[in-house]
Amino acid sequence: MSIVLKNISKKYENKILFENINLEIDSGEFITIVGKSGIGKSTLLSIIGSFEKVDDGEVIFNEKSVKKPDRNRIIVFQTFDQLLPWKTVRENIEFPLIHTNSNGLDIEKLLDELDLKSVENLYPHQLSGGMKQRVAIGRSIITKPQVLLMDEPFGSLDVGTRQNLQRLVLFLWKEYNITIVFVTHDVSEAVLLGNRIWILNESEIIEIENPIMRPRDQMAANYQMFVGELIKNIK
């Protein structure tokens, strides 16, 4: 068992987001989180990463109660400002290695896998949105973290780029054996990526095993039926 959320409650001012929720994430899982805007997806992800304090309950990671973020639960955002503007692609990806004194993954191999070799010396503002997110993903896995927390990382990308990056994330997930928790408002993306799907609603969190076999064909009838079923459950 990798992460356990135990009796978590969280409210902002007078808005109650979560009340006494219990969730578990096994190591190696790919969990996708869907739900309508403002329901608390980002907040839940931040709680899992210990970026956001809880009012009650605790987050248990590797059998220990955790209160602060750590290098084994890396978060990736949707916004492009997460890259260091004064560092090149390569320097951005290497940044965590320097600050954790770890060897990490082979950067040459990673640059290849991310298809960033040809732009490794460019600065973030010289990159396309898709390239920027590939850099962010590269940086997030270079230290071989156990868990990756991704908050709509492809939310600002066009369809083609998005598909490429979905494939990339699945590849990295298998290759490096990471646990991924992935927030998206695109239900089809959630079905494509996750083994389990969490639907966040006002008063409940629905957990559903993904029945579709990999590799998943988004055109297949059972795939689309499952997507439709999930959409009906989002309230």
Binding site: G49, F51, K68, P69, D70, R71, R73, I74, I75, F77, T79, D81, Q82, L84, P85, W86, F95, P96, H99, T100, T143
Partner: peptide, 26 residues
């Protein structure tokens, strides 16, 4: 950007390190 400061937190950087490597160049 809050995200940049969170990158520092993610790698357990203390305030001084975060200032020197993230805020100051930023």
């Amino acid at each position: 950007p809050k995200t940049l400061s969170m990158v520092g937190d993610n790698y357990e950087m203390g305030l001084l390190r975060k200032f020197w490597y993230i805020y100051f160049p930023g």
